[in-house]
C-alpha cells in the first residue's frame, strides 16, 4: 500500500469472474505520512482507508467483469464496521463479493481481514460507467497489470 497515493491493493490473489468474487492483498507500510497524524505515537490505518481498500478491490472486480472497458466509482457505503486496529506492516486480505450488477450500478459486500480476524466490513454501492477519458483507462489498465489481475489488457 502507498497510502498517500491511494494505492491500496498490492496484488490480486484470486479473481473469479463467474463466481463474482475477488481476493486482494494489502500490505500496510511500515511508515507513511498518514501515520504521522493518525495518530502521533499510535499509528493505525484510518477506517476510511480500510473502506477504500475494500472499495478498490470491488472496483477491480467490476473492471475485470467489463473486460476493462468500464470504470467503477464508489457511490455509497452502508453498515461499515471497523472491528479492530490495523497497525503498520500488517498484511490484510480484501475479499469482495458482488451481490447484484444492475444497469449502471453494482452492489457488493466487502470484508477486510488479517489472518482469520475480520477487521472491517461494509456494503458497497458503485456507479459503473465508461471511463471518462482515455488517460484514466490506460492508467488503470497499467495498474491492473502491475497488481496481477488476470486478463488485464497488454500494454498498448
Amino acid at each position: 500500500m502507498l497510502l498517500e497515493y491511494f494505492h491500496m491493493i498490492d496484488r490480486v490473489l484470486a479473481l473469479d469472474l463467474a463466481g463474482q468474487t475477488i481476493r486482494a492483498e494489502c500490505r500496510v507500510p511500515e511508515t507513511s505520512p498518514v501515520f504521522e497524524g493518525h495518530f502521533p505515537g499510535h499509528p493505525i490505518l484510518p477506517g476510511v482507508l480500510m473502506i477504500e481498500s475494500m472499495a478498490q478491490a470491488g472496483g477491480w472486480l467490476l473492471l475485470a467483469r467489463s473486460g476493462f472497458e468500464n470504470a467503477a466509482f464508489l457511490a455509497q457505503v452502508k453498515a461499515a464496521k471497523m472491528r479492530d486496529f490495523v497497525t503498520p506492516s500488517q498484511i490484510l486480505l480484501a475479499d469482495v463479493a458482488l451481490q447484484h450488477e444492475g444497469s449502471g450500478y453494482a452492489v457488493a459486500s466487502g470484508r477486510l481481514s488479517r489472518g482469520d480476524k475480520l477487521v472491517a466490513e461494509a456494503s458497497l454501492t458503485f456507479r459503473v460507467m465508461r471511463f471518462p477519458n482515455e488517460t484514466m483507462r490506460t492508467q488503470m489498465q497499467a495498474v491492473a497489470r502491475r497488481i496481477g489481475i488476470p486478463g488485464a489488457p497488454a500494454d498498448a
Binding site: Q76, G102, S103, T125
Partner: peptide, 12 residues
C-alpha cells in the same frame, strides 16, 4: 443516489 437503492430493491 437514493434511486440506486430503489433500483437495487426493484431488481431484487
Amino acid at each position: 443516489l437514493d434511486f440506486l437503492d430503489v433500483a437495487f430493491a426493484i431488481d431484487k
